[in-house]
Every structure is written in structure tokens, then in C-alpha cells.
């Protein structure tokens, strides 16, 4: 399991970097072709939509890794004090809530995907099904649920880097 999680994080990192640099490349290509005055610029009408769609993937695929690295924002200063003083297992509660919440959202994302497939909605300039917009949150919430679950069962430590981020 540990090896699976490590490998997953590495794959995510590479996919994210490739997606991001791809977005930059496409946008820069658009500017360059237009600046050159080439008539080919007309053929690049799909780039804006494509980059916007890639951005949605960047966002949702990055959320799981952000969780593992303790990078999500929150107010963490009081949590451990409360935990120490009252014995309330706050970290476990957060992991449990996050796990259930993300699984539920992933389930809704499945519903949305089915719905959009049935409705045959397209992204016109890309000529692909609009379902691709909703595969991103589906994947994102599954990846986050995986991290909340792994943290709940002690397979990863997502709280230590978080404390570092918060500077305590």
C-alpha cells in the first residue's frame, strides 16, 4: 500500500507538470502564430477551450497531492491544543469527514458524468463530449478520498508538513 501511494504521488507529479507545461505551450503557440500574422491563427480557435479544460484537470488532479503534502489552507493553530486539552481526536474526525465527504462528492460526480453522457452534450470547439469536464472532479475527489483514508489508517502523515507550512 505504501509503495502504491508513493508511486501514485510520483505519477501525479509528472502528470501535473506535463499538463501545466502543455497549457503554457499551447497558449504561447497561439500568441506566436497570431503575432507572426499567419492565417493559420484561425485554425487555432480551439486552444482557449482546450487550455481551460486542461486547467480543470490541473486543479482537481492537484488536490490529492496537495492533501498529502499538507498544502491545503486552513487554521491549524488551535487544533492540536484542543486535542491535547480535551482528548478529542480531531485529526481522526477530520480524516473521517474528509473521506466520507469526498467519496460522496465522487459518487455525485459519477451521476453527473452519466447524465452528461446521456444528454450527448459536446464541447463544440473541441468536438468531444462535455463529460470530460466532469471526469476531472470525479478523479480529483477519488484521489483526495484516498489520502483522507490513508491518513485515517496511519499510512501517510499529512499533518507534519502541514504544521511546517503553518510555521509552528
Amino acid at each position: 500500500m505504501q509503495r502504491f501511494l508513493d508511486g501514485l504521488a510520483r505519477v501525479e507529479a509528472v502528470v501535473l507538470a506535463a499538463t501545466f507545461l502543455g497549457m503554457v505551450g499551447l497558449y504561447a503557440l497561439n500568441v506566436a502564430v497570431r503575432a507572426s500574422g499567419s492565417g493559420f491563427a484561425t485554425e487555432l480557435y480551439w486552444i482557449e477551450e482546450a487550455v481551460r479544460t486542461l486547467m480543470i484537470y490541473l486543479v482537481f488532479l492537484g488536490c490529492g497531492l496537495a492533501l498529502q503534502q499538507g498544502r491545503h489552507v486552513g487554521v491549524y493553530a488551535w487544533r492540536d491544543r484542543i486535542e491535547a486539552r480535551t482528548g478529542l481526536p480531531l485529526r481522526r474526525l477530520i480524516d473521517l469527514f474528509g473521506l466520507l465527504f469526498c467519496l460522496w462528492l465522487a459518487w455525485i460526480a459519477v451521476e453527473v458524468c452519466q447524465f452528461v453522457l446521456n444528454s450527448r452534450q459536446m464541447i463544440p470547439s473541441l468536438g468531444v463530449s462535455a463529460v470530460w469536464l466532469y471526469v476531472a472532479p470525479l478523479a480529483g475527489f477519488v484521489l483526495m478520498a484516498l489520502r483522507f483514508g490513508a491518513s485515517l489508517f496511519g499510512l501517510i502523515d499529512r499533518y507534519t508538513p502541514q504544521m511546517h507550512e503553518a510555521g509552528e
Binding site: 497570431r34 484561425t42 480557435y45 482557449e48 477551450e49 463544440p124 470547439s125
Partner: peptide, 26 residues
């Protein structure tokens, strides 16, 4: 000339037919 259009094949052809370039911009 360069004209802005919504991203629609039909509109791009509308401009192309008179020799203009159509750019899809938000």
C-alpha cells in the same frame, strides 16, 4: 482583416468566405 468570433465553425466560414480571418476570443 482579423475579426473576433465566438468559437463556431459556421461563423469562421462566414468570414473566410470574404477573405477575412476569424479569431475565437472570449
Amino acid at each position: 482583416q482579423r475579426f473576433r468570433v465566438m468559437d463556431s465553425r459556421v461563423l469562421i466560414e462566414q468570414f473566410r468566405s470574404v477573405g477575412a480571418a476569424a479569431m475565437a476570443l472570449p
